[in-house]
Design a protein around this nucleic acid. Structure first.
Lengths: 344, 344
DNA sequence: TAGCCAATTGACAGCGTTGTCATTTTAACT
DNA sequence: AGTTAAAATGACAACGCTGTCAATTGGCTA
């Protein structure tokens, strides 16, 4: 029942170590030997024992995904992306949800790392922005990859980051609206603690500036990344029979946009005839509203898969200090039914 | 940096094996010795090495959660529930999303099991209903716990199941509506392949029967567990200026209900004044609609935690064949703003 | 053909824990 | 105090693999 590396070695007529070399894709194995071993592996349907590999080897075969995010869609995408890479590379995935506001979090985090003997970690926002965490990992000499909201050109002192260019996404969406004749474009922001919020706001402002539209603070609603916040924000912005003359609303993310959409409906405002609404992230949420949301597609599963790939390469070549790698992802706008020409 | 069981043993002045006994909460360790060891453990901040435990021990310290469910909220709840138990018990969690329709699924599944050397698995619907999977696990003699939709009294040939009583939930919601004067209660069903769908329908029918309301097939819309299906279902049921005289709609789950809600709004139907709507599951979804949905609360994180607990106890006492344990969870109705008295 | 270096392969110890079984200690009896 | 069984503890091998380093092989030059 249980097939060990020794069984394979015997069948192939080589030593255990050679089988090990083949399994681990080490160089300096003759092609002929390689084939011989692989044949035996297939014949016996040999499955390497992860525990033994972790124990014996100097490096481990597990990575952790750390998150503190209430958005289930986001988390699932992240997991699936990392997981698909893990499968290919024979790694295990340890998921570690946590609360960044919890005092004990850091200790617990450390415990988890020590227990699991990780090859590395993937950090998602907002944890990826937390300096104490980064510092701890550096001290432990533990490889990690961070997912951050940011622009490539701003990369100062950052290393091993995957940047999501929320600035560009917001710019593009705003420009899309401007091209459709919108001038009074409101924005229901997400949590201000999140870098993505400030980046999206900045992109929005830049687009206005580049199109000679002056920024109007009263069109900005400081909210949260939630449906309710979208409802409240839209209600506020459209108050008094739309005194402000808002013709478009950017939602901080899709949930916020969905909330805004709902509030507008309650006020008997036609979407997109009377009001355009857009979100960010292209979560399933944006397809569960009606009309469907124009949003900025952010391929979280692709991004997380990339993060995992980066982490693996980093973990493997731990001796030669790789250059600090930065990868840039720019969401692309997806135009659906919730945006249209500005009403005349 | 790295603290082993040997370090603890030396500090405590006992053998490694005794430390091992303490760590594993084995009996036959004197209280005094126990305290001594625990003190040393704390002083050194000793963390047992999972890989070594898995390798050396006869049983392993990892369980898998297997799912094939597009509902992100559901999956996250399941994960968190199992995970919290894992943390307490020092187990690792391996997550295994898969596609039950995929041909290769079963092979891949088997590979995963062999690689990970699991203590057991938690199976969620619809995989938990698939006989080929169950059979395979039985043949492999691999412990598992199944989450199923069903009623305790129906338990035939089932073992180690956690039953969610969707029948009772539907009954309760239907009765709630009947008590509020509703007679023409429509139902937008979920996927008919899911046991939960037939169970919910049966509960609905029983409640009608018990209250002398005849079942009307035209009030049933066979849909899917999706927002869009809810929209379509409601449109269909309320067509022709509500020819059928529907005063309430049950959504197959919260997503479906949210869709129905949206469709109703589009038709300028006031909720709940003119139409009551309810869902199932009490996912965050039900709080992201407006008005918030009346639904049947199903504590998935509690359920999954319970499943994990059951699995651990099963995995530990593998020799004595425990009696086939069945646990029953009955969702409880949560009345929010989407239901009210029937219009007169 | 011998000689030499690099490429390839193998022998063996050891990773940190637990299972087995032997040994010691304790408690409970004569 | 002496005996005995039970409880508590310890010594040591083993889990399945990889790192180290030594041994072997092959290819090439002289």
């Amino acid at each position: 029942m249980k097939v060990t590396i020794n069984d394979v070695a015997k069948l192939a007529g080589v030593s255990m170590k050679t089988v090990s070399r083949v399994i681990n894709k080490e160089p300096s194995v003759r092609k002929k030997t390689y084939d011989l071993v692989m044949e035996a592996v297939k014949e016996l349907n040999y499955q390497p024992n992860i525990a033994a590999r972790n124990l014996a080897g100097t490096s481990s075969f597990a990575v952790a995904l750390v998150y503190d995010n209430p958005n289930a869609y986001y988390v699932i995408d992240m997991q699936n992306g990392v997981l698909s890479r893990c499968k290919d590379e024979g790694f295990e995935l340890v998921i570690h949800p946590c609360s960044s506001t919890d005092d004990q979090m850091q200790d617990e985090f450390k415990t988890m790392i020590q227990r699991s003997r990780l090859a590395g970690l993937v950090l998602t926002p907002p944890l990826s922005e937390q300096q104490n965490i980064i510092k701890m990992l550096d001290e432990m000499n533990m490889p990690y990859v961070r997912l951050l909201s940011g622009r490539e050109e701003q990369n100062e002192g950052k290393s091993n980051c995957i940047l999501v260019n929320d600035f560009a996404a917001a710019y593009e969406i705003t420009e899309h609206l401007i091209k459709h004749g919108h001038k009074n474009i409101a924005f229901v922001l997400g949590d201000k603690e999140h870098k993505s919020t400030t980046e999206r706001l900045a992109g929005y402002q830049q687009a206005l500036t580049d199109n000679n539209i002056s920024f109007n603070q009263s069109l900005i609603f400081e909210g949260h990344y939630s449906f309710e916040s979208g409802v409240n924000g839209a209600k506020h912005l459209l108050a008094n029979n739309n005194k402000l003359g808002v013709t478009a609303i950017l939602g901080g993310n899709d949930e916020v946009a969905a909330g805004a959409l709902f509030a507008a409906r309650l006020m008997n405002i036609e979407i997109p005839a009377q009001l355009s609404i857009s979100g960010f992230e292209d979560s399933p949420f944006s397809r569960q509203t009606w009309p469907k949301l124009t949003t900025a597609h952010q391929a979280n599963n692709v991004i997380s898969e990339h993060a995992a790939r980066l982490l693996f390469s980093k973990a493997r070549s731990s001796r030669k200090q790789e250059k600090d790698i930065i990868t840039n992802f720019t969401p692309s706008i997806v135009v659906r039914e919730s945006t249209g020409p500005a009403p005349v």
